[in-house]
Write a protein that binds this DNA or RNA. Structure first.
Length: 512
RNA sequence: GGCGGUGUAGCUCAGUUGGUUAGAGCAUGCGGCUCAUAUCCGCAGUGUCCGGAGUUCGAAUCUCUGCACCGCCA
């Protein structure tokens, strides 16, 4: 073990029965920003995303289209991957549950737990809808009928393997109580605590009604149940049960599983108890974010209001979308996606505040110094205040990033944008420019201003990689080297640098 | 039905262990600058802090109760 800092974070694996929408993009984007931030802070990052491909729904959907489940999955996987490219997602691996490495891991963990006596063969009894080939619990039925198709259901028994989840109730409870940050946000933690206190039952972890899945070791009649299969991706991607390349011992336990609030229970009850049974350490943290409504309405296929991320990116630009999604809503709460809110954010925050700051600053440098940065002279009070503000704010942003409070981090960065704009007003370069005796002072002001922009660019890079690179290019700084550790102190721009007048970073969106 | 949460400016929210004139951003109004993508900066508001009762010298903050909304479970 070297002492290099490491960070492992994951998105859920997305089910290939659905095509990518704003919700998928949101989760993945949040992870990407965190991953980029951690890298900028000197961490070696493992950033995992992927797809969940097994199960009855996929099997049936494929059948309906006259293709194999794997062919269907291949098709949908491409759509996810091309969206991630387009969104500038920097994942370091992409796991598919249909891959051999995953199958090995799932069967191994199954065998492992079974050998310890925590998996047993029993009978699963529930209400079965024959046309849908789906089991329903009594409480899910609508007047005794299938909630999907409305047809009558029958009580059926099926042989099934069970995981002795009940055995781990107290251990899990103790873990959550001893680790207040294990489940975030807090409101979700409370929900899970009360869920566990009501009592955990053993969990059915195999099915015999379909075959598109991973067979139970030693009993091919059974396919391993979707969540037992899917959750294991977080370690199968690291090579579990092997550690030949050292990935598993290097990155496990995971620092954070970022998920949507709909799959909280699977990640904070099922997954930890599986791991306990297998004798594997638990992840450090599970963070459940909220959902997006669209123009005030719940997203649904029937309303046809599902937001298509590719279209948004084409229309507004990738960085604008990245900015909006993480700035508009506190991570963990629900939010609303509306066209007017998006345009408002783009125009006021990106075009007016940040974009215009860069425009006016580079324009002045060109007007007064033909674009050449001069050495700063004497530092006066307002310079010092500006510098202190920036130096302190870097730490504030860091705190927010640690807490996954992306909106607060951006808010804090924008306080710097405001401070820089205010600095221009306070120092009034256009007045200084009229007096030859103030030439040196004018040069200092310009230097401080451009330096402020450099720092802003640095902080903004994990959120908006293209914009960060643009700002670097404008300032003549190496855009590929954005390490915060080496660059987050004041005064690193080189005097003598020629900086051209920048074209607008973000064009205003004119509304009628 | 059980458990938990929320209700503060037009909107979105912050309000630490109860303590002076209740805050921020956006929106609104007014003023200033002119370097800039008609951008930027400053100032100003407005609040029965959901209703009611109680504890206290003092409550948005604690207790009880009513109403409304939300989440999880059944």
């Amino acid at each position: 073990m070297s002492d290099k800092k490491r960070f492992y974070l994951s998105t859920p694996i997305y089910y290939v029965n659905d095509v990518p929408h704003i919700g998928h993009a949101y989760t993945t984007l949040a992870c990407d920003v965190l991953a980029r931030y951690k890298r900028a802070r000197g961490y070696e990052v493992c950033f995992l995303t992927g797809t969940d491909e097994h199960g009855q729904k996929v099997e049936k959907a494929a059948q309906a289209k006259g293709e194999t489940p794997l062919e269907l999955a291949d098709r949908v996987v491409k759509r996810f991957q091309s969206l991630w490219d387009k969104l500038n997602i920097s994942n370091t691996d992409f796991i598919r549950t249909s891959q051999e490495r995953h199958k090995l891991a799932v069967q191994e963990i199954f065998r492992n737990i079974e050998a310890k006596g925590d998996i047993y063969l029993g009978e699963y009894e529930d209400w079965y809808c024959t046309p849908c080939e789906t089991f329903w619990t009594e409480t899910n039925l609508l007047d005794g009928n299938c909630p999907d198709c409305g047809r009558p259901t029958d009580k059926l028994k099926e042989e099934s393997y069970f995981f002795r989840m009940s055995k781990y109730q107290e251990q899990l409870l103790a873990h959550i109580e001893a680790n207040p940050d294990f489940i975030q946000p807090k409101s979700r933690r409370n929900e899970i605590l009360s869920f566990i206190r009501e009592g955990l039952r053993d969990l059915s972890i195999s099915r015999t009604t379909f075959s598109w899945g991973i067979p139970v070791p030693g009993n091919d009649k059974h396919v391993i149940y979707v969540w037992f299969d899917a959750l294991t991706n977080y370690i199968s991607a690291l090579g579990y049960p092997n550690d030949n390349d050292g990935e598993f011992s290097k990155f496990w336990p995971c620092d954070v599983h970022v998920i949507g609030k709909d799959i909280l229970r699977f990640h904070t009850v099922y997954w930890p108890t599986f791991l306990m049974a297998a004798g594997i350490p638990l992840p450090e943290k599970v963070f459940a974010h909220g959902w997006w409504t669209v123009e005030g309405q719940k997203m649904s296929k029937s309303l046809a209001n599902v937001v298509e991320p590719n279209m948004l990116i084409d229309k507004y630009g990738v960085d604008a979308i990245r900015y909006f999604l993480l700035r508009e809503v506190p991570f963990g709460l629900d939010g609303d996606f509306s066209h007017t809110a998006l345009v408002h954010r783009i125009n006021s925050d990106l075009a007016n505040d940040l974009g215009n700051l860069v425009s006016r600053s580079t324009a002045m440098l060109n007007k007064y110094f033909k674009g050449e940065l001069t050495s700063p002279g004497e530092t006066i009070d307002i310079d010092k205040i500006l510098q202190d503000k920036f130096t302190k704010q870097v730490k504030v942003v860091d705190g927010h990033m640690e807490a996954l409070a992306f909106n607060k981090a951006l808010q804090s960065i924008w306080e710097l944008v405001s401070a820089a704009n205010k600095y221009i007003d306070d120092s009034a370069p256009w007045t200084l420019a009229k007096d030859d005796a103030q030439r040196e002072r004018l040069g200092s002001v310009m230097y401080n201003l451009l330096e402020a922009i450099r720092m802003i660019g640095l902080l903004v890079t994990p959120f908006m990689p293209e914009t960060g690179a643009n700002i670097s290019k404008i300032l003549g700084v190496d855009p590929t080297d954005q390490h915060l550790e080496e660059h987050d102190s004041w005064g690193l721009l080189k005097p003598g640098t020629i900086i051209e007048k920048a074209t607008p970073l973000f064009p205003r969106i004119e509304t009628e």
